[in-house]
Simulated assay, not measured.
Amino acid sequence: MTSPFSTSTEPAATGPVLTVRGELDVATAPRLRARIAELTVTAGQLLVVDLADVTFCDSSGISALIAARNVAEAAKAKVALVAVPARLTRTLTLTGLADFFPTYATAGDAIAAHA
């Protein structure tokens, strides 16, 4: 059974918190990229990407996460991934991308570390 894809954004004192739900794959990654492009991230802020409810992530999904990092860097901001599922953590580690994404257990932890 597939999980429906969705995103939502909440403001935080340090910048936007983008929550991603469902399967992040070749069919849904363009929607995530479009959502990321709509975000307002300014210098010094932190873009938090909450992956707690991501049920699957393929290479297209990882590419969309890299796009989030690129958007943050272009704005002279930072990005953090939170609640990264174990399988995705393993993939990020094996590909060497774990070094590019600070990860935290919760959005609160990421925000506190950035403050």
Rank of each mutant, 00 (worst) to 15 (best):
S60K: 04
A27I: 14
V79P: 00
P30Q: 09
L24R: 14
L97T: 04
D99H: 05
P4R: 10
E38D: 15
A27M: 10
I36W: 06
A67C: 00
T28L: 02
Y104R: 03
A105E: 13
L94D: 04
L46S: 08
A67L: 03
T55E: 14
A107T: 02
A115R: 15
R33F: 01
L94G: 01
T14G: 05
L51K: 10
V41Q: 13
A29Y: 14
L88F: 00
D25I: 09
A110F: 09
L18E: 12
F5Y: 15
L46Y: 04
E23G: 05
A67F: 07
L18T: 03
A86F: 00
A13P: 02
T106H: 04
T42N: 12
D109H: 06
V20P: 03
H114L: 07
L24S: 11
L47W: 12
T95Q: 05
V79M: 08
V26C: 03
A29E: 09
G96H: 10
L65I: 05
A75I: 12
Y104V: 03
A98P: 02
Q45H: 09
N70T: 00
P16K: 13
T55W: 10
E73D: 06
Y104M: 06
T28Y: 01
F100D: 14
F101M: 07
D53G: 01
H114D: 11
R31N: 12
L97D: 07
L51Q: 07
I66K: 08
L94E: 12
G61C: 04
A77F: 09
V71R: 15
T106K: 00
T55I: 04
F100A: 14
L97M: 15
V71S: 12
R69M: 14
A68G: 14
T42F: 04
A98D: 15
A75S: 13
A13T: 07
R87E: 10
G61S: 06
T19M: 11
A77D: 03
R35H: 12
E73L: 09
I66V: 15
